[in-house]
Amino acid sequence: MTVVNRGALAAVAAGAAALAVAAVVAVVSRPAGDVGAEQAAALASPTPSTAGPAVAVVPGALPEDTDTVRPVRLRIPSIGVTARVGPVGVNERTKEFDVPPSVDQIGWYRYGPGLETDSGSVVIAGHVDSAEQGRGAFYRLRELAPGDTVTATGDDGTERTYRVVAREEYDKTKIPLERYFARDGRPRLTLITCGGPFDAEARRYRDNIVVTASPV
């Protein structure tokens, strides 16, 4: 075998090796994909009304402030999450969910249902990471799989356990937020963070990761 031939073979081997590495990286870094999307959609479908034929008559009193059980702590053992939860609303300027700036903290959407609810979606969102603070509480949210448990502690001291039924990834421009912020349908816990390809210039992820869990 000539020296030239050996060089060609080495080039072929190096090329094959480079492609193999690239292929492995592509497979490993591929998003885990959606699971349980149908279950998540089924939970969000409105429950039929049970109103009878009689006309309801109520005193026209001014509405009272309703007591809502706020989640104060969230535990997800399978991905090592124990995080404090604070009540948040919407950003006055952008009208977006006001995710707590500290990446250790996660935010509960205070306009939606609380933990005591018997219908609708309790929404908790947190950072996957931040440029300044590094990894966030929901860094590994995309690793959750159906069957994993999530425990939320309310400000009433009661722990409520949920089981993951779905994990979905949406382009932020296409995510059906109305469904995840719905106040009807079966009671459920919805966890949201960012994911997918990252635009380094805009400092923004393309996608949202959404995990839906049902009360156990």
């Binding site: 990286v25 592509a26 870094s29 591929r30 998003p31 919407v90 952008t94 009208k95 977006e96 969910f97 995710v99 959407y109 969102a125 947190g126 950072h127 996957v128 990471d129 931040s130 440029a131 300044e132 603070q133 590094g134 990894r135 966030g136 929901f138 860094y139 995309r142 932020k172 937020l177 109305e178 995840y180 912020f181 949201i192 963070t193 960012c194 994911g195 997918g196 390809p197 990252f198 380094a200 400092r203 923004r204 992820y205 393309r206 949202n208």
Partner: peptide, 17 residues
């Protein structure tokens, strides 16, 4: 619903190639 859920600026969880 809110208009969006912005929840990451770091890029460490980038799944793009």
């Amino acid at each position: 619903a809110p208009s969006g859920v912005p929840s990451g600026t770091g890029g460490q969880a980038d799944t793009g190639l």
